[in-house]
Design a protein around this nucleic acid. Structure first.
Length: 424
RNA sequence: GGAGGGUUGGCAGAGCGGUUGAAUGCACUGGUCUUGAAAACCAGCAAGGGUGCAAGCCCUUCCGGGGUUCGAAUCCCCGACCCUCCGCCA
């Protein structure tokens, strides 16, 4: 949510910011409603003040045994007027909220201009792309040949975009998640959290998935949804709270399942387990001060990168351009891992600095040391990493000519000492 | 699912329908004292919003929404959540 006061004071900057998002200028429309709302509010407050004063007066008169009838009649009139005013004010407030809640975050100054992912800017490539003296297969070919990955049965059970893994592939996925969480908690200072994977609408509003992106979510009840990412419960952990500056930064990580309806991506990545309705992800969330959030963004991205480095996977980091940056983010780094089977880089992590955008929506504040009052915290989130996609990457990058898969060294302890997966 | 109890400021915890935005304690901030610190003592300390150059003034908020009343944290109704007991159950 954007700061209306800021829009009021910087209408041109606001319109320019929206233009970067491909949206028409709308400060005029917004501020018109805002000005009207405030005039109604001021009027209402004056009525209220008069009513309060009269009510107190009545109390005094009555206490001293006087006759307060005239005053009582006057207040009754004020009340009707105030009622109508309140109604109008509420309508205007709702209009304003509806408009504000679908406006995307203001992009950071250093986000490159561009319309689509084509204009994302590559920042660095790390690791050596592996070479094969045979044609590398895609993960699902490998998995099916091993008899440990079954899409047809999954479709029978659940429909398209599901998979059943088994045996050492299932174990490998579990090992990956455990490895990631261990690195983040034992080495990077994140607190492991096991949050609910079903949340209320208000939580989704807080992180920005609602009201705009409801069709991407699975709804399980009147006001209950499956989470599309653990960013939602983790970030909402601080909703409606006022933290001490000494509690920041808060670094949280969780290994959870995520659920996405993938509405609108029909026909995209239909083969294999690249794009599923249900997938595992290790998520990182940081709650920081405004001064520290940019630095924290780099740190978080480095934490995600470190997982790839330790798995010996080649990757590149891109900064998303203005047209590709998500609704709630000021700036986003995508990490793309090399997939030999596809002969290309594919997204495996996305690290975003949301600034105070989510904090404003969920009223998450802190007390800056040495200052009076409170400020909104900054929130960041990043995958560290998408577990299913990491499984894909390991399978494809560590495949051997006979269809077996070597286990990356870092994972061997998590695989009970096993060094490769091969068909029996 | 059935019965009852609860939800008050950063936390704990009072609160008769009428100057209660809310006692008290803790925490926090400033000061006195001290070589320094601790302790003790004194003082300050809710959030959001409107208006104003400013000082300030005003409004809202005691889980949320309705209602009663001249006036509600206090009374009534609905909802959410929490707790206890019973039933069912992974």
């Amino acid at each position: 949510m954007l700061d209306l006061k800021w829009i009021r004071e910087n209408p041109e900057a606001f319109d320019a910011a929206m233009q970067r998002r491909g949206l028409p200028p709308q400060s005029e429309d917004l501020l018109k409603v805002d000005a009207y709302r405030r005039s109604v509010q001021t009027e209402m407050q004056e009525l209220q003040a008069r009513r309060n004063a009269a009510a107190k007066e009545i109390g005094k008169v009555k206490a001293s045994g006087g006759d307060a009838d005239a005053l009582i009649r006057e207040v009754a009139d004020l009340k009707d007027e105030a009622q109508r005013n309140t109604e109008l004010e509420r309508e205007l407030q709702e209009t304003l909220d509806a408009k504000l809640s679908v406006l995307p975050n203001i992009l950071a100054d250093d986000v490159p201009e561009g319309e689509s992912e084509e204009q994302n800017v590559e920042l660095r490539r790390i690791g050596d792309i592996p070479t094969f003296d045979f044609k590398p297969k895609e993960h699902y070919e490998l998995g099916e040949a091993l008899g440990l990955m079954d899409f047809e049965t999954a479709a029978k059970l659940s429909g398209s975009r599901f998979v059943v893994t088994s045996g050492q592939i299932a174990r490998l996925e579990r090992a990956l998640a455990a490895f990631m969480v261990d690195v983040h908690t034992l080495e990077k200072g994140y607190l492991e959290v096991s949050p609910p994977v079903m949340v209320r609408g208000s939580s989704l509003f807080g992180t920005g998935q609602l009201p705009k992106f409801e069709e991407d979510l699975y709804k399980t009840g009147e006001d209950q949804y499956m989470i599309p990412t653990a960013e939602v419960p983790l970030t909402n952990l601080v909703r409606e709270s006022i933290l001490g500056e000494d509690e920041l930064p808060k670094r949280l990580t969780a290994h959870t399942l995520c659920f996405r309806s993938e509405a609108g991506s029909a026909g995209k990545d239909t083969a294999g387990m690249l794009r599923q309705h249900q997938f595992a992800k290790v998520e990182m969330v940081s709650i920081t001060t405004p001064e520290k959030s940019a630095e924290e963004h780099e740190r978080m991205t480095a934490c995600a990168e470190d997982i790839l480095k330790r798995l010996g996977l080649a990757y590149r980091v891109v900064v998303l351009c203005s047209g590709d940056t998500g609704f709630g983010a000021r700036k986003t780094y995508d990490i793309e891992v090399w997939l030999p089977g596809q002969n290309t880089y594919r997204e495996i992590s996305s690290c975003s600095n949301c600034g105070d955008f989510q904090a404003r929506r969920m009223k998450a504040r802190y007390r800056p040391e040495g200052e009076k009052g409170t400020s909104f915290v900054h929130t960041l989130n990043g995958s560290g990493l998408a577990v299913g996609r990491t499984l894909i990457a390991v399978m494809e990058n560590y495949q051997q000519a006979d269809g077996s898969i070597k286990i990356p060294e870092a994972l061997v302890p998590y695989m009970g000492g096993m060094t490769e997966i091969r068909a029996k």
